[in-house]
Computed example of a mutant assay.
Amino acid sequence: MTDTIDGEPRVLATDAALAFIKEIQQDHPDVLFHQSGGCCDGSSPMCYPADDYIVGDNDIKLGEIGGVPVYISASQFAVWKHTQLIIDVVPGRGGMFSLDNGRERRFLTRSRLFAGGEACAIPVVKHV
């Protein structure tokens, strides 16, 4: 697996996210991201100290943002393989175990379909 599709990175970050990563690295210099798919934190990108998180055999490295590796589980990658992940920052609480927790901002994953433009909401179909 390559970390690009047609020269486009599988994962990238906004300037706000890159600045927030640098802020977190002042306390935790070596970090990594794992794109959560869990029930508790939804689909939040979770930021962990690199030495506290064991990357599993079924995790796939999507690429790096600001020199920080980003991983996703193989099962979640199978669903999102045609999607570019864009890590951003919004106000709020981070995931319970993520390093953004308690900083009044949290990481958020936005997405864009490769060769399909920005992802959009699926229209609701009313059955009569």
Rank of each mutant, 00 (worst) to 15 (best):
M1L: 11
M1I: 10
D3P: 00
I5N: 05
D6Q: 14
D6H: 14
E8K: 11
P9A: 03
R10I: 04
A13H: 13
A13K: 07
T14S: 15
D15V: 14
D15Y: 00
D15G: 11
A16H: 12
A16Q: 11
A17V: 12
L18W: 09
I21T: 10
E23P: 01
E23W: 03
E23L: 11
E23G: 04
I24S: 01
Q25L: 02
Q25R: 15
Q25M: 11
Q26K: 15
D27V: 00
H28N: 15
H28Y: 15
P29F: 02
P29N: 06
D30L: 02
V31N: 02
V31L: 03
V31D: 05
L32K: 07
F33V: 08
H34E: 06
H34I: 07
H34D: 04
G37P: 01
C39I: 12
C39H: 10
C39F: 09
C40T: 09
C40N: 15
P45M: 08
P45L: 02
M46A: 10
C47Q: 07
C47F: 07
P49Y: 07
D51R: 11
D51T: 07
D51Y: 06
Y53P: 02
I54F: 05
V55H: 03
G56P: 04
G56H: 13
D57G: 01
D57T: 03
N58I: 01
L62M: 15
E64S: 14
E64G: 04
I65P: 07
V68R: 02
I72E: 15
S75M: 04
S75G: 02
Q76K: 06
F77T: 00
A78E: 13
A78Q: 10
A78P: 05
V79D: 08
V79L: 11
W80I: 00
K81W: 12
K81P: 06
K81M: 07
K81L: 04
K81G: 01
H82V: 06
T83G: 03
T83R: 10
Q84M: 14
Q84W: 01
Q84K: 15
L85M: 12
L85C: 02
I86V: 15
I87S: 01
D88C: 08
D88Q: 03
V89D: 09
V90M: 08
G95T: 00
M96K: 06
M96I: 02
F97H: 14
S98Y: 00
L99F: 03
L99C: 01
N101E: 13
G102D: 10
E104C: 09
R106Q: 14
F107R: 03
R110H: 15
R112L: 08
L113R: 09
L113S: 07
A115C: 02
E118Y: 06
E118W: 12
A119S: 10
C120R: 14
A121C: 11
I122W: 05
I122M: 13
P123A: 06
P123I: 03
P123D: 09
P123K: 04
V124M: 07
V124D: 03
K126V: 11
K126E: 14
H127Q: 08
V128Q: 06
